[in-house]
Design a protein around this nucleic acid. Structure first.
Lengths: 179, 179
DNA sequence: TTGTTCCTATCTATCAATTGATAGATTCCG
DNA sequence: CGGAATCTATCAATTGATAGATAGGAACAA
């Protein structure tokens, strides 16, 4: 076969990301992904041997991209605003969860490598924010953790209410204090 | 058969609650619940016709109990501390998510009645906190939403890190400001 | 040019296990 | 008896995964 319009491996990851951020790790099947991409489920296994491997790889890609999108974030208190915008943007795009937010919530039922990658996301995300806050708040680490927690929870609220306004409301004072 | 040691219906709900709070809606089966309770999976269907009905009922029970546990919460800013303690207690007991936190995260893949009950949890939880805050903060509703969001997210962090200390850290400033 | 080999990517077909759910028999108690 | 609660047995559908066939192109030899 001639290669598909785009890299099939990436398109499988794209489909898996959409599905997991909507319904969780156990909320989709290889056949779902295959249909999304336009191939057969056996072909998905050619690119990723197991579901665990697929999602672990996906979570790694997600983390890299997320941190990359914050590469130009300002230092100091305004970095909090950049984080809020990053999460809000991803929510507004497709009304879905943060990938690692879902995985963290479901972590009791996940393969080890996936749980590990999700933890890495939070470690790195919090650490990056912490570094940007050093010198501007009294306890950078706990402040960073508090901000990330609030943003994850705000996405859950927006999903539960089916309304992005709920995210804005739950992060309103965060935006005011840091702008 | 003579009735089990305790009300079987309640024990099924208990098992389902534990399972969902650990691995999500799609992270368990009727057979899992049956084994937990010590009956056969067909008997679970005698008590609840479908999985959707079971989880919708469970979510209702969860909401009632949660609000009940906050019945004696103080008014004013200290109510925030009571909320924090309520979530922390439930996390410390069995290291699991808030039921409606998971369901909110997975809401894209849930039956309608379950999504609806999860939304009710957040509506009622936020409203109750809001009422306790009237007159003590400038914007009670958004403050209440922000607190609930932060607590949900803090549980996710604690699960991702496999460490309750992460919850404490992410809610530390919340506890200080409101005590 | 033509033919052969080899690799990549996909396919068809299938597997055993698990899923939510149902029908109908059985058992116990009042 | 009659109802409540459980059982055995089974179903069709879906699951993640595997084996093996097939198609297409690139590289290379003749």
């Amino acid at each position: 076969m001639k290669p598909m319009e785009a890299n099939t491996t990436e398109r499988i990851l794209d489909a898996a990301e959409r599905r997991i951020r909507d319904a969780g790790y156990n909320g989709f099947s290889f056949r779902d992904l295959a249909e999304d991409v336009g191939i057969k489920s056996a072909s998905v296994h050619y690119h990723f041997p197991t579901k665990e491997a697929l999602v672990a790889t996906l979570t790694e890609r997600y983390t890299e991209r997320f941190l990359q999108s914050l590469e130009d974030a300002p230092s100091g208190i305004r970095c909090i605003l950049a984080y809020r915008d990053a999460f809000r943007r991803s929510l507004a795009e497709d009304r879905r969860m943060c990938l690692c937010g879902v995985l963290g919530a479901e972590s009791g039922g996940l393969p080890d490598s996936v749980t590990r990658q999700a933890r890495l996301f939070f470690e790195r995300t919090i650490q990056k924010l912490e570094q940007a806050l050093v010198g501007t708040v009294s306890e950078p680490h706990s402040t960073a953790a508090a901000v990330v927690a609030q943003l994850q929870g705000a996405i859950i609220l927006a999903r539960a209410f089916g309304n992005i306004a709920a995210f804005d409301e739950a992060t309103q004072e965060l935006a005011e204090k840091s702008s």
